[in-house]
């Protein structure tokens, strides 16, 4: 009897709290005010304004509607397609080199007993330095006459490319920088996911007599498929937005001979050195749609839960 009345009391208390919570529903919106103010002002408004601008001829002060002319002019412009080509070329090679390389190093680090943490810290070091500073250093590292890379190449009897001074090799210079800077990130992500593979799987394989290499091929790699997909897509999205290092190495027009001008640099050049806001907006929308498609695939693949 006494028990029952206590239970009733507690239930009533909880009910009271629940109903009170309903009254406080409005309070929750207060928690969201700062973030949604930011979303409206710095996300929603600029996205629509940018779309509007892409249908106008505009230099920031004078505007008039010209329909799809900006898109037409961007899509028929050689320098835009050159920028797309450069962006894709650098991005594709950065990714197909860095992911396998990073994965192999992550696997070795994961399987070594000594100094695991030391290697983690060492390999991640390039990634913590800003890409701007890194580009500044690499302009010298890859210098055709005074750089250490060509010094080593020459010493072991290999040809010494002109790197950033030659349009036919300059993209490779950016790729080398990009691989060097990104590999630490790939290693960290791979390591985190390698350590999440249940050890029972390896133990079972060992009992069945699988060698280390067999375990790597038949257990590790299939278990890492999601991680590879994630790295592939985030890497690709980052590659589509490449700007900082090519700006430092080649300026807004991507010298030499526009050979390293990326889409981001094209947008910057047309928008902020030429003040052709309409053209630049159309170009950003084309890029935005590309990024959106890949981000969407990423969210699907990595199965982010809402």
């Amino acid at each position: 009897m006494a028990n029952n009345s206590i239970e009733l009391n507690v239930r009533m208390e909880v009910e009271k709290v629940r109903s009170k919570r309903k009254d406080w529903g409005l309070k929750w919106y207060v928690f969201l005010i700062p973030s949604f103010l930011g979303i409206l002002l710095f996300m929603v408004y600029p996205i629509f304004e940018s779309l509007r601008l892409s249908f106008y001829q505009s230099n920031g002060t004078v505007e008039h509607y010209i329909g799809l002319a900006n898109f037409k002019s961007v899509l028929t412009s050689n320098s835009f397609w050159n920028a797309v080509w450069n962006t894709f070329f650098i991005g594709i090679f950065q990714i197909i080199i860095t992911i396998p390389l990073g994965f192999i190093f992550a696997s070795i680090i994961n399987s070594t007993k000594r100094g695991q943490n030391f290697f983690k810290v060492l390999y991640f070091l390039p990634n913590v330095t800003s890409i701007v500073a890194a580009a500044m250093i690499f302009a010298f590292v890859l210098h055709p006459e005074m750089g250490i890379v060509n010094y080593v190449l020459h010493a072991i009897g290999l040809p010494t490319p002109g790197w950033l001074s030659d349009p036919s090799t300059s993209k490779w210079a950016v790729i080398i920088l990009a691989v060097w800077h990104w590999v630490g990130f790939v290693i960290i992500i791979c390591l985190a996911n390698l350590q999440a593979i249940p050890s029972e799987m390896y133990e079972a394989a060992k009992i069945d007599g699988a060698s280390g290499l067999q375990q790597w091929f038949f257990i590790t790699i299939p278990n890492m498929a999601g991680t590879f997909a994630f790295l592939l897509i985030t890497g690709w999205i980052g590659a589509l937005q490449r700007f900082n290092e090519v700006y430092v190495l080649g300026g807004p027009n991507g010298s030499p001979a526009r050979s390293i001008q990326t889409m981001g640099a094209f947008i910057y050049e047309r928008g902020f050195t030429g003040f052709e806001f309409g053209i630049a907006s159309a170009a950003t929308y084309i890029m935005f749609i590309l990024i959106l498609v890949f981000t969407f695939i990423n969210l699907k693949v990595s199965k982010m839960k809402i």
Binding site: L41, M43, I47, S50, G60, G264, G271, M287, F288
Partner: peptide, 15 residues
């Protein structure tokens, strides 16, 4: 999360 900086550059600059 899906909205990069580039398409927002010019409107934010104008803002």
């Amino acid at each position: 999360l899906m909205i990069p900086m580039e398409p927002r550059l010019i409107p934010l600059y104008k803002l």
